[in-house]
């Protein structure tokens, strides 16, 4: 009996959890952004997307269930918490470690290590900003739509949160996926690595542009 508890392979489990939770969060992030970007097609399109996400097609009156969004917010929050708890093992948390990293970057300024440092920095920004975003939408799911969201972003100062969150999370996710692919050997030789690096930069750039364009597109709907 005792043998079983002793044999839990925590290090491996944690590393797997970090990669898998990261992949799930990245997929969610990109799908989420595509859905929000429906505002670029106009208020009706976004309204339709928002209602569909509330499963309006399942309710008799066609209004859907806004609490579905709250449930999603809670689930994503839990996934983020899991990802953070595991990723924390990798961050330099002590002064000694931070000094070692700074000294290392000074003596050997290696590109992919710099990239990782940005991933760590953006990770902390997301950690701080994402819960606020989740709370805002999770607590008032019925307001999500062209007019409610526009009001939140432009009248209540939401953009102050969303712009840094968008920049940080899109950089973090793309670098993260790039690293997961290399980490588990899903890409082949160095040539694929260069292409992969390019692809991740393009993905970050496109999603940031689409995100910023969507934020701007909400502006006319803010009364």
């Amino acid at each position: 009996m005792n043998r079983k508890t002793h044999r839990v392979k925590w290090s491996g489990l944690l590393d797997l959890t970090q990669s898998i939770s990261g992949i799930l969060l990245a997929i969610f992030l990109w799908v989420h952004l595509c859905l929000v970007a429906s505002i670029l097609l106009g208020a009706e399109a976004m309204q339709w997307v928002a209602k569909t996400m509330e499963l309006s097609f399942l309710s008799a009156d066609g209004h859907g269930y806004p609490w579905v969004v709250t449930v999603m917010a809670v689930l994503i929050g839990v996934l983020i918490l899991l990802h953070v708890l595991v990723a924390l093992h990798k961050l330099p948390l002590t002064l000694k470690q931070q000094r070692a990293l700074n000294k290392q970057m000074h003596v050997i300024p290696h590109e992919d290590t710099k990239l990782w440092r940005w991933q760590a920095i953006t990770g902390v920004i997301v950690l701080l900003a994402a819960p606020v975003h989740l709370w805002l939408v999770g607590a008032a799911p019925e307001t999500i739509g062209p007019y409610g969201s526009a009001d939140r972003i432009w009248n209540q100062g939401g953009w102050l949160l969303y712009v840094p969150l968008l920049l940080a999370v899109e950089l973090h996710a793309a670098v993260g996926i790039y690293r997961v692919v290399l980490k588990w050997g899903l890409a082949g030789d160095d040539m694929t690595r260069i292409q992969l690096r390019k692809a991740k930069s393009i993905a970050s750039a496109i999603f940031i542009l689409v995100g910023l364009a969507s934020l701007v597109a909400f502006m006319p709907h803010a009364s």
């Binding site: 392979k9 290090s11 491996g12 944690l14 590393d15 093992h89 990798k90 050997i108 290696h110 590109e111 992919d112 290590t113 990782w116 690293r179 290399l182 980490k183 050997g185 160095d190 690595r193």
Partner: peptide, 26 residues
Amino acid sequence: GNQDGVFGCMTLLGCQDNCPKDLPHM
């Protein structure tokens, strides 16, 4: 199989990019 070994590696790839013998570390 621990954080001092393969699960502690953060794939920063300094090894891969600098190995003078071009060993396939990654």
